[in-house]
Write a protein that binds this DNA or RNA. Structure first.
Length: 387
DNA sequence: GCGACAG
DNA sequence: ATCTTGTCGC
């Protein structure tokens, strides 16, 4: 049975795009480009990949080790965690790396060459996912991507093995490599401690039958499986949630609101009254108050979720509830004006229960009064649920 | 300024 | 990445 570990977002992980770009500029100097890398066909080759369930805030990563000569599976490991960053082109690594590192750490054997689903050198700042993972682990890495990103290339000739340069302006940052006759090429770039020739040779060795390397195919299928397992409905938890009188009350309260976004905004405002704000919380408050900004709901949700990572090293119950309320404001605003896809339609049911939790966690008894005022009512059966 | 943009 | 009906091929 493969190992499975759980990770949280690392303390100090970048919360904004600016911070993330600064990290890339800092780490870029550590990439090693002048090693040839392990010869194809010997030792281990490891594929890593990640799958997401944004709705449940779950990310699952897989690492699958293959025997480079036979392409047989030697070992595999998975890890699940919270989503640490929104998807931003050029910042993919910050979304994938924490969970991928945990999966690699859980392997029972050395990974050898790591094949990433994405880019290395071929990146706006020349520091893509494969480069980043290589610098953090010290392992030789390459990137094999399915799309050309922002780069240009001429179509390679028809036969498998043909290639053309992948260009950023005039600079060769990788290759468009045909892995199957007359099938769309893959886009290979160097990560860490591997030459472009070696990277392409490995890619061809790993594609005896399909367009994509066996490493990424195996890792892709395994991380999807791990995600399913992690988010599978737990009958026990579902029963407990369904039996929770607070949830029932929260639903009816929410459905009686004529303007849920404004209402949730007022609840959030009451929750943070007298406490220190973050820019993201202010963002959510502003969002709720201005109907013409509701189309930014998803963006605000992403920002709040990203910023809450910075508070994970000091897990304060009150703070965490406030962030979840702010996330809800973003979700409700988005759901009010679209466009699809929408967030969970049941999201608003949590506003009431979260307000109650905040009042329970707060040291200041005045918080309960403020929350009750903002909600408009308080759950009648809160205290005498089962007795 | 606007759109495009690894997964 | 994820959402999704039908469709082509072994």
């Amino acid at each position: 049975m493969p190992t499975m570990t759980t990770v949280s977002i690392p303390a100090g992980w970048p919360a904004t795009e600016e911070e993330a770009r600064a990290v890339q500029d800092e780490l870029r100097a550590r990439v090693v480009l002048d090693e040839p890398g392990p010869p194809p066909g010997s030792g281990h080759v490891t594929g890593v990949d990640v799958a997401y369930d944004d709705e449940h805030d779950v990310v699952a990563a897989a690492a699958v080790v293959l025997d480079a000569a036979t392409l047989d599976v030697v070992a595999e490991a998975t890890a699940v965690g919270r989503i640490s960053f929104p998807y931003v082109p050029g910042l993919l690594a910050f979304r994938e790396i924490p969970t991928v590192l945990a999966a690699l750490d859980a392997l029972p054997c050395p990974p050898g060459l790591v094949v990433c689903d994405g880019y290395g050198l071929a990146h706006p700042r020349r520091f893509g996912l494969a480069s980043h993972l290589g610098v953090l682990t010290g392992l030789p890495t390459i990137g094999v991507a399915k799309n050309p990103f922002t780069f240009t290339y001429d179509a390679p000739a028809g036969p498998r093995g043909s290639w053309t340069p992948l260009l950023a302006a005039d600079e060769e940052v990788g290759r468009a490599l045909r892995t199957r006759d007359s099938v769309k090429p893959v886009f290979v770039s160097v990560g860490h401690r591997v030459s472009l020739d070696t990277a392409c040779a490995h890619t061809l060795t790993l594609t005896p039958e399909y367009r994509l390397p066996e490493t990424t195919r195996r890792a892709d299928s395994l991380c999807r499986k791990a995600l399913k397992e992690a988010t599978r409905p737990r009958p026990e938890l579902a029963a407990r949630a369904a039996a929770d009188p607070t949830r029932t009350w929260g639903r009816s309260l929410y459905e009686r609101q004529s303007n849920p976004v404004v209402w949730a905004g007022r609840v959030l405002a009451a929750a943070v009254e007298g406490t220190e704000r973050t820019p993201e919380i202010d963002d959510a408050l502003e969002l709720a108050a201005h109907r013409d900004r509701w189309s930014r709901g998803r963006e605000v949700f992403d920002r709040v979720r990203a910023s809450s990572a910075a508070y994970l090293d000091q897990p304060d119950e009150e703070q965490s509830v406030v962030f979840r309320l702010a996330e809800l404001v973003g979700k409700l605003a988005h759901n009010a004006v679209g466009p699809p896809p929408f967030f969970d339609h049941h999201a608003g049911w949590q506003v009431g229960p979260l307000a109650v939790r905040l009042a329970t966690a707060a040291h200041d008894p005045a918080v309960r009064t403020r929350m009750a005022d903002a909600l408009g009512e308080w759950p009648p059966t809160e205290a005498d649920g089962t007795s």
